[in-house]
Write a protein that binds this DNA or RNA. Sequence first.
RNA 1: GUGGCUGUAGCUCAGUUGGUUAGAGUACAAGAUUGUGGAUCUUGUUGCCGCGGGUUCGAGUCCCGUCAGCCACCCCA
Length: 422
Amino acid sequence: MEKIKAVRGTKDILPHEVNKWQFLENKAREIFSLYGYKEIRTPIFEEISLFVRGIGQGTDIVRKEMYVFDDRKGRKLCLRPEGTAGVMRAFLEHNLADNSITKLFYTGPMFRYERPQAGRYRQHTQIGVEAIGSAEPSLDAEVISLVYNYFILAGLENIQVELNSVGCEKCRGKYKDILKEALAKNVTAFCPDCQERFNLNVLRMFDCKIPECQNFLNEAPKITDAICPDCQAHLAEVKAHLDLLKINYKMNPRLVRGLDYYTRTTFEIIFSSLGSQNAIAAGGRYDKLIHELGGDEIPGIGFAMGVERIVLALDSIGKKWPEMSSLEVYNIAVGSQKAYEYLFELTNKFRQSGISCEIDHRQRSLKSQLKTADKLKAKRVIILGDQELEKGIVLLRSMNTGVQREIKFEELFDLVKKEVLP
RNA sequence: GUGGCUGUAGCUCAGUUGGUUAGAGUACAAGAUUGUGGAUCUUGUUGCCGCGGGUUCGAGUCCCGUCAGCCACCCCA
C-alpha cells in the first residue's frame, strides 16, 4: 500500500510546534484590540468573481494561482487567495459601515497555487487587518505602526519598513502613460518577462531583478515624482506621522504590489535574512476597492502578515517560544487495583476543579511511571502503593526539589488545590 | 511555469572505485536497586536506501523517468 502524504505545498503543524502559531495569533488578538480592532471570520471559499473584481483580472494571483472549482450546482467558486476581498464583501453584505472607522482583523488559511519553497506554501496562514472608512494619512501611519509594534512585541526586531505611493486612479493612469512613453523606444531591450509586463501592467516592470532591465528603469521617471499634488500631499503627511511615531522607514519607489486594488500608500515589512521570501507583512490603501465591489466610495487601508514566514524569522533568531500548558499533578499507582481506582477517581476530581492531572492507565512500574512524569514535566507526583494504602496516606513528591511528603487521604485534595490555585 | 541541488531509521547524517546479513549519533524501550525521574553504563527495537523502470552476475551506489523538499527566477504573506 502506498502511503498518502500531505499534498504538495501544504504541511502539518504538529503538536510540538503549534504553540508558535498560537503565540502569534494570541499576540495579534492582544495587540489589535489595543487599537480597537474586532475579529471577523469569513468563509475560506468565495465566488471567483469576488477576486476577479477585487484583486484584478490581470494579476498573477487571478490568472494562474487560484484554486478554482465548480460545486454541485455549477457555482464558480475558489479557495480564497487572500483576505481583504472577503472582508470587504462581508462589510458590504452586512452594512458594517458606521460613522467612525470600522476596524476589523482576521486570521486563517489562504490558498495559492505556486511552486513551493521555504516560506512559500500553497496553504499558508495570514493574520490581517482592515481599517475602513477614512482616507486620512494619519490612519495610514497608525496602521503601519500597528504592524511595526506587533513585530516588536512578538520579539522580532530586525525589520525594515518599506514605503511607497502608487498614486490614485487618475494620476496612476497618467504615470503609466508617461512610463510607457519613456520606455517604449527600448522595449525590445528588456527581458521577455518585462516585455510582457509592459503590455499587462507597466508598473510591475519595477520588480524585475535583472540588472540590464533595472538600468533602463533607473532613468525612467519615478512614480513619487509623477503622482498628482493631492497624492504627494497625502504621502508627505503619512511620512510626517511616521516620523512623529519615530518609525524608521525606507522609501522604495519600486515597491509595486501585485494586487490591483491598491491606491496611494503601499508598504512592506521585510526580514531580509529570509532569502527571496522575505516579506513578512505587506499592505496598503485601497480607496476604490469597495466601490469596485458594488458599494459606495469608501476608502480603506489594511495589511496581511504571513504567519509561517514570521515563525521562520523568529526561529532564525532563536526565539524562546512560550511553553505549552504544564502538568500540575501526575498520579502513580503501584501494586493493588484499589490504589489505582482511588487515583483514577482523584484524577477526575482534580480535572473538575481546573487542575491539570494525568494518570498511567497501564499499571507500569513505579520507575517507568516516574520517567513519564518527568517527560511530561509534571510539577508534582502523587504515589500510592500498598504500604501507603494501609496507613491511609499518599506520597506527594515535588519533581523540582525531589522533596517527598506523607499526606493523609482526607487532607490531600485541599492541600494540592491550595498549592495550585492559591 | 523555468533552471539547479538534494532524497538512507521518528530526527540529524555516514555509507569508500557498484560486491554478500545497511551504519553512527539522537530518540524510544528494558536493565544496572524486585517501590522512586533527570546523570552514567549495558542491552535491545526501528529501514519497500522516496517511487517506477533500465544497465549489470550483482545497484543505497550508475542511467532514465516520476514524486517530494530546498535554492534562484517568477510571484508573494
